[in-house]
Computed example of a mutant assay.
Amino acid sequence: MSFGKTTPILRIFDVAKAVAFYVDFLGFKIDWQHRFEADFPLYLQISRGDSVLHLSEHHGDCTPGSALRIETDELEDFQRQLMAKEYVFAHPQIQAMPWGSQDMTVTDPFGNRLVFTNAISV
């Protein structure tokens, strides 16, 4: 038996703020987006490398304030890229964790925490 990739769904409330954070700041790209009708909530997929996230304005899809971990092998370079953008709402710092990884937590405008990590190999 095998399992595939996990695609987390994160709750958003404002598309412009979501794009400013996920696309402009973090460097994800929009793969596709969907609305059932013109004024209905937006559901979209974004990605950066192998990391794929779904963002949803639909109230029943997920809960704001979620947390997820995204592995990267270039955490220090990513942190430098983010700091160079001078994003007013985040100044991400790398922390050494007691279990041996290096983690950098960034919180989106909707309270979702993204922890970028160099993760420990097992």
Rank of each mutant, 00 (worst) to 15 (best):
T105K: 06
A96T: 01
E76W: 00
D108K: 08
A90N: 10
F40S: 10
Y22E: 03
H59F: 05
S47Q: 06
E37G: 09
V88C: 03
W99R: 08
I46N: 00
D31A: 07
C62Q: 08
E37L: 02
S2F: 13
A84E: 14
C62K: 01
P41Q: 04
V106R: 01
D73H: 12
N112D: 09
V52M: 12
F21I: 03
L26A: 04
I120V: 15
F116W: 00
W99T: 03
G111E: 10
I9L: 08
V122S: 11
T107Y: 01
Q81H: 08
D77P: 00
A67N: 06
A84M: 11
G65I: 15
K17L: 07
M104S: 07
V15K: 11
E74Q: 11
I12L: 07
F25W: 13
E86W: 02
H34Y: 14
V19Y: 12
F13R: 07
E71Q: 14
L75A: 04
M83Y: 04
L75Y: 00
E37V: 01
H54P: 08
D108E: 06
A38S: 09
G4F: 03
Q45N: 13
P64Q: 04
F13M: 02
Q95H: 13
L26G: 05
L75H: 02
Y87F: 14
T117E: 11
R11A: 14
D24Y: 11
E57S: 10
K17R: 12
R113H: 13
T107A: 13
A16T: 07
V106G: 00
S101Y: 08
H34N: 08
T7H: 10
L42K: 10
T105C: 09
R48F: 08
Y43F: 13
S2Q: 10
D39E: 14
F40R: 05
L26K: 03
D39A: 08
A67I: 06
T63S: 12
D108W: 06
F110T: 02
A96P: 00
P109C: 05
A90H: 06
F25N: 09
M97G: 10
F110E: 06
Q93T: 05
V115H: 02
S47R: 15
Q45S: 14
V106M: 11
H91V: 05
F40Q: 01
S121R: 12
A90Y: 05
C62E: 13
G60E: 13
W99E: 03
I9P: 05
R35P: 00
G27F: 13
A84I: 07
Q79N: 12
P41S: 10
W99C: 04
F78Y: 15
A84L: 13
V88I: 06
I46M: 00
S51T: 15
S121M: 05
L53Q: 05
G111N: 08
H54R: 03
E86C: 12
A20V: 03
E74C: 09
E57I: 05
R48A: 10
N112W: 06
S101F: 02
S56A: 06
I12V: 12
Y87C: 04
Q45C: 12
N112R: 04
F78L: 14
L10A: 01
E37Y: 07
S66R: 12
Q79D: 02
D24I: 03
D50L: 14
W99Y: 15
N118G: 04
